[in-house]
């Protein structure tokens, strides 16, 4: 049997050594981690405009992604009244944190892509799925009405059912060409319809077995896009 003093000494020494090694490793790798995370987030934004980029975002190298962001993308942050907030980049906005704030104090990121066919506005939306949060990027053509692309992601939706909003590219690609507004200018949003889209302009097909996630997407789009309307007014 070891003495109590030995046990205390042993445990303290072991945890000390381990803590030192791990913190050294963590600080040493922090730059690479931050860079990887930034590229991961940039890829998520770009996958909403995959259609307009004419290449698969998956096949782009890290350098190319940085390049597109530097040369073709303008980052804007707006407040709930549609005013541009200066001094902040869109990628510094953490949507998860903004969602916890009272509605009037939230800030919203806008990425403006200057492509060959004019500007594309990419906005971020966030809502709740069945198990946890879901979020997405919606790309709008410069009429701020026609959807140019969409990409969704989630925290913990069921694989094969709700997770299809991310995993199945044909779900997001349905959004291309849909309209946010009625011809008379009323906001209509886009609805994920269980059993198949009926309105060719404002509805997309749901995913069988994922009704709650699909309703979450509908709700997220309606609420999230509405937040941007004051900003859209100033741009139009």
């Amino acid at each position: 049997m070891h003495s109590t003093r030995y046990i205390i000494f042993f445990v303290l020494a072991l945890t000390g050594v381990v803590a030192l090694l791990l913190s050294l490793m963590s600080t040493g790798l922090k730059d690479i981690h931050d860079r990887n995370e930034a590229i991961y987030n940039k890829k998520a934004i770009l996958s909403a405009i995959e259609n307009s980029l004419e290449t698969e975002v998956k096949s782009l190298s890290d350098m190319e992604i940085m390049e597109i962001f530097e040369q073709n993308i303008e980052q804007v942050v707006v407040d709930m009244k549609g005013q541009v907030v200066s001094g902040v980049l869109a990628e510094e906005i953490d949507m998860a944190r903004e969602r916890k704030k009272p509605e009037s104090q939230r800030r919203l990121p806008v990425y403006i892509y200057n492509g060959n066919d004019g500007k594309i506005y990419i906005i971020s939306v966030r809502g709740s799925g069945l198990w946890d949060e879901i979020w997405g990027s919606i790309a709008l053509e410069d009429d701020l009405n026609t959807v140019a692309g969409a990409a969704f992601d989630h925290q913990g939706e069921t694989p094969g059912l709700g997770a299809e909003i991310k995993d199945n590219p044909s779900f997001a690609s349905q959004f291309i060409g849909k309209k946010l507004y009625e011809p008379d200018g009323d906001f209509a949003s886009i609805t994920v319809r269980k059993g198949g889209a009926r309105d060719p302009l404002h509805e997309v097909d749901g995913i069988s077995g994922a009704t709650v996630t699909a309703d979450g997407v509908t709700e997220m789009l309606e609420r999230g896009i509405k937040y941007y309307q004051p900003y859209f007014e100033t741009v139009k």
Partner: peptide, 20 residues
């Protein structure tokens, strides 16, 4: 403690090597 620190090493390495 030994297992947890090795797992942290794996986690930090993977986060640097393959973020996806």
């Amino acid at each position: 403690v030994i297992i947890a620190s090795l797992v942290t090493v794996v986690e930090l390495t993977l986060k640097a090597v393959n973020f996806e």
